[in-house]
Design a protein around this nucleic acid. Structure first.
Length: 197
DNA sequence: CGACCGATCCTC
DNA sequence: AGGATCGGTCGT
């Protein structure tokens, strides 16, 4: 069993945390069954100065409130009325910032993933934020869950990724966000399971 | 309370 | 390339 990342891991610079999350393992336990995947794509959203962030200019609402709380808690939200996205609260205390987990490489529980996704094949199980949430059965029940304590959903150890293997690009789906849209805050590995090449 | 707009995905 | 689909947010 992978050991959970500690709160100190999350309480660092959000861009650094994103890069350190690559290669780590997202773990979900449902009853006695395990689902796991290697994180291969992550984005940073840093509230106060980031026009793409839900917490831009320290905006507070029932939805964003968790970003102001304990580091290492989950931020789950719904996009396009249909899809869940899974983030972790990161960075210095009281500054709203998250890492969005955009894609993982499936490791364990692929058949359960297919069942959760109602997929006939093993394709497209986890190569996108909405898809991986469906495969992992992550939804608003997990809003605010402490990933440093929970044993039904957490991020655990993984392989160490050399800095030379980390690619970066603009973030996906934030064309509306003015100057922030060009920030290179998407980090990913050269891996067939990223959401886009 | 009504209107607008997505941190996406699927099927043309 | 376009449509699905509805929660969050904001304006009236």
């Amino acid at each position: 069993m992978k050991s959970r990342l500690r709160r100190r891991f999350y309480a660092r610079n959000p861009l650094l945390v994103c890069q350190c999350l690559l290669g780590k393992t997202l773990v979900r336990r449902i009853d006695h069954q395990l689902i796991a995947g290697k994180i291969v794509e992550v984005e940073a959203y840093v509230g106060p100065e980031d026009e793409a962030s839900h917490a831009y200019r320290n905006f507070r609402s029932p939805r964003t409130q968790i970003q102001y709380g304990k580091r290492g808690c989950s931020y789950v939200f719904i996009v396009y009325g249909m899809f869940h996205c899974f983030c972790v609260v990161v960075g210095p205390d009281h500054v709203p910032a998250v890492c969005l987990i955009r894609a993982v490489e499936p490791l364990l529980g692929l058949d359960l993933m297919r069942k959760n996704r109602k997929c006939a094949t093993y394709r497209n199980l986890t190569n996108g934020p909405g898809r991986l949430c469906e495969s992992f059965d992550i939804d608003k029940r997990h809003y605010g869950l402490d990933l440093c304590r929970s044993d039904t959903l957490f991020i655990g150890d993984g392989e160490t990724v050399p800095a030379s293997k980390i690619k970066s690009s603009r973030r996906i789906g934030v064309e509306y966000s003015g100057n922030s849209k060009r920030l290179p805050w998407r980090f990913y590995l050269e891996n067939p399971f990223v959401s886009r090449p």
